[in-house]
Nucleic acid binder design. Structure first.
Lengths: 219, 219
DNA sequence: TATTATGTAGGTATAAATACCTATTTTTAA
DNA sequence: TTAAAAATAGGTATTTATACCTACATAATA
């Protein structure tokens, strides 16, 4: 797959000339990569690419630009020229941006304060047809799962039977159907519902379902 | 923070001797790391650590072992000896396992077919107090967000008014309350409910709420 | 041993949702 | 401009959920 002596042409898009210059100087001794174009916003970058799409292998773009953000640029490029690789570089590390980058089908995401080694690794990987996502996003994903964990513990306020019934409620069974399934009276199911509503401070089953989903009850 | 010439002591836990031998031979020329103990399951590993916890810096463990899986081992180690680093190594790449590893507070996660460079990078990072998560998990996270994206588009099957009403349903308002809020009849709200039930193929409001949450309607 | 939590179940009522209808106005698109 | 989709609203009936009540058996616990 890999072409050993091929040089990859890079378009840099960032509204700070300092950043563009920094990345250029970082790559100046790397014969494998050549910065062949620059843009100060997404629209400018898109215009450059549209003029001669075959000339660019990689678009290295900042997130925050106007007009046309890095994410929007990525979406456009991937739609019009799927072969061009896009590496999104962000100043900050936010889950929302990572998600957007992934949904825009970016080939990579990294934070600006990454070292030269990380930069080169990212370029190697994506020109090789792979993806590169900065390790810095891990703590964010991590913290999301920590949240989930805490919420799991909240679920333990409910008894086993209540959790069993809750999961059937989420499966859209009525009290009667749940009773049949568990060989108990509909009335008993209704009692459990009422107790759960109280315990979870919910106005109706809808709140209960939200609570269940928040706490990872499979529906 | 980093101690330049320090040697780190590693405990290997895997129920396949082949894997243990493989990792050992991989590290044999790395003076920075020394495999000083081996275990064939989590319980055995935990016993070894408990006997002399100060002797081990890193636990490198497989996921699938019995008794005591790698995840459970990690949980225990982190609870009893938080200073010991845990790197979880898995044969397969599953989101569920990654999540569990994160929730067990593992310092790193990587797939078994990683190269020596990745292995060393992982060890460097975690002995340095950081975390290392294999790039291979990115496509999985990615695919999850792709799902979300598709579902976002699904929401557009609903009209604006329907989405407005759906979001109020998720907020646990009754048809009557929604009607008051939007200055329309309760009957109209009921019609919208019915249409949405049909459009979304739901048996009851509960299904509608699940649909809404899946599609990111804020409740 | 007495108390509390859990799971069970019945009665009676009301409130809310759902299933059918029909029908008018407005907006959108063909 | 004509047809289709969306938003509106009413009638009637049934089903489901919720709000109160009481009551009893069991298991865990103080």
């Amino acid at each position: 797959m890999t072409e050993p002596n091929r040089q990859y042409s890079i378009l840099l898009a960032d509204d700070h000339q300092l950043v563009i210059d920094g990345i250029k100087s970082m790559l100046v001794n790397e014969s494998k990569y050549a910065v062949t174009a620059e843009a100060n916003n997404g629209q400018q970058a898109l215009d450059i690419i549209t003029a001669a799409p075959e000339k660019y292998d990689v678009v290295l773009t900042d997130v925050n630009m106007a007009p046309l953000t890095g994410i929007e640029l990525c979406r456009k490029v991937k739609e019009l020229y799927p072969d061009i690789k896009v590496l999104i570089v962000s100043m900050y590390n936010s889950m929302a941006v990572v998600k957007e980058a992934m949904q825009a089908e970016a080939d990579g995401y990294m934070v600006k304060n990454s070292g030269k080694q990380d930069f080169l690794q990212a370029l190697h990987r994506i020109t090789d047809g792979g993806t590169y996502y900065s390790q810095d996003i891990i703590p964010i994903i991590y913290s999301q799962y920590q949240k989930e964990k805490q919420q799991d513990e909240e679920l333990s306020h409910l008894t086993l039977r209540e959790r069993e019934i809750l999961s059937l409620i989420v499966k859209e069974l009525t009290s009667e159907e749940i009773g049949e399934r568990l060989f108990i009276s509909k009335k008993t199911v209704d009692n459990h519902r009422k107790n759960m509503l109280e315990k979870c401070n919910c106005k109706s089953t809808i709140g209960l379902v939200k609570y269940a989903i928040r706490n990872g009850v499979r529906g």
